[in-house]
Design a protein around this nucleic acid. Structure first.
Lengths: 261, 261
DNA sequence: CGTCCGTTTGAATGTGTTCAATGGAAGTGG
DNA sequence: CCACTTCCATTGAACACATTCAAACGGACG
């Protein structure tokens, strides 16, 4: 994680997007220019579209929104109007259990497109909460649907985003259903490490932006178990844990510990 | 389940579709007539489309396929060419764990549309296996994408199908992550009961078409625990269990036992 | 400077797993 | 058509793992 501080040691994306307090207009920019400069465009909706298609895409009335740590972009039950793309910062998606507790179902990093699950009912089934100060791009879904009529790439990309989420959910399901706490935490760290690397950050050193409770909820255990497991990994020299700062000392051992893809 | 035998006691769909050995052509029917007569069309892709859109939909080269109990329609890694709609019978979707074991991620009933998760990579991430003799409709995805360019309803329906799956997965995730075995089994039975009712069958009496091992895998527990839990419910008079035949004797108690939506 | 939140660690408890054996149903092949 | 085989389900007992309850520590923030 750690998308706001400048701790990336790997070839980081142009540092401009880290400027949380920057002077960019907060909403309804021209999407063509907005997307052209967006550091995460390769992961976003426009990925793979031709120039011709980008013209159509430019018709979208995109809006940027900032979210402070702990703030919700949308909540369970909110009317579905926008799909969102993370520009920088990180988020968690949670559902509300019948007893009122929260269950984390996903963590989102820059470039992730979020909210398509709301197409099921027209209302958001999840709450999207910022884990740190962050910025997100709001894309009107009805307009997106219009534009996708004229672009096969975009049309299929929309379904592919949902499909990718399904694949991830199934892997998570398998992880929770058939592995022990240690394997879950290892898998979580490896997954995070890989996602960091994909975004140009170090896969071996990063900050967790979520609490132990969030991780525990996501992995189907308790915060105590997460804490104990991290300590155990540290004791064995696999990682170094210092509050939320994680250093992977032995990636092979970590991968071996997860026993899951 | 029990979609092949004639045990439905509720207003059942026209019995014609139960004719597994019927004389219907095995593939490449005219979709217009095929869909018009399909007993599950209200749940399928054409749901909500106007007559005008149905004309476009008729361009699709649909193909029917039969699957015997235990046969796979597609396997992990197979190239993604078709989306499938269950006509009758039931299926399970499984992923393969690194150690070779199988993990059930979904059960499918008539009208369910399956396979969109393959859009993520162009290859199927799951194996689709028939739990009984069944029939399924194969829809070429590229053609579907073409047609959806001209129908907003179909376009959004495609995304909605994936979105609905996401919502179900998240609920399953929460169930496995934060509840005990008894609640999981109760939730499974209630969910199945509701899906039976939606399809015009009795919500209080049905056959499980999957093994205890399948249920256990799906619920993140073992077959022994499933068996024990069912026995416990039977002992308390909540259900009657006779091999795979389930009778819900006290639906309120069953709903209360799950403590989950 | 004080409070609160998040994290770590300990100890006891309980739930589900694992290993094992049995019984029965269904399907196969002679 | 019967016998055999195989798969599926049930139940028991010992064990292991994670949860729960509890306390203490440290950092962050007002």
């Amino acid at each position: 994680m750690d998308f706001t501080s400048g701790t990336a040691t790997y070839p980081a994306p142009a540092a401009g997007h880290l400027d949380f307090t920057g002077a960019c207009a907060p909403s309804h920019d021209n999407p063509a220019s907005q997307c052209a400069n967006c550091p995460v465009k390769v992961r976003c909706l426009t990925s793979g579209t031709t120039e011709w298609e980008t013209v159509h895409f430019a018709r979208l009335a995109l809006g940027r929104r900032r979210a402070r740590k702990g703030q919700a972009v949308y909540r369970v039950g909110d009317r579905f109007l926008f799909v969102y793309a993370v520009r920088f910062g990180s988020f968690k998606s949670t559902i509300v259990l019948p007893d009122g507790r929260e269950q984390v179902v996903a963590f989102h990093l820059p470039g992730d497109v979020v909210g398509l699950d709301a197409t099921a009912t027209g209302a958001h089934p999840t709450t999207l909460t910022a884990l740190e100060n962050a910025e997100i791009c709001a894309i009107p879904y009805s307009q997106l649907s219009d534009v996708s009529a004229e672009s096969r790439t975009l049309r299929e990309h929309l379904v592919r985003i949902a499909g990718s989420e399904l694949v991830r959910d199934h892997k998570l399901l398998a992880l929770i259903a058939h592995s022990h706490a240690e394997e879950r935490v290892a898998a979580f760290l490896v997954q995070l490490s890989e996602r960091m690397q994909e975004r140009g950050y170090s896969p071996r050193e990063f900050n967790l932006r979520m609490t132990r409770a969030d991780i525990g909820s996501y992995l189907g255990t308790t915060l105590e178990t997460v804490s104990r497991t991290l300590s155990a990994f540290a004791r064995r020299g696999i990682v170094s844990v210092e509050r939320r700062r994680i250093q992977v000392l032995d990636m092979d051992a970590l991968r071996a510990a997860r026993a899951y893809a």
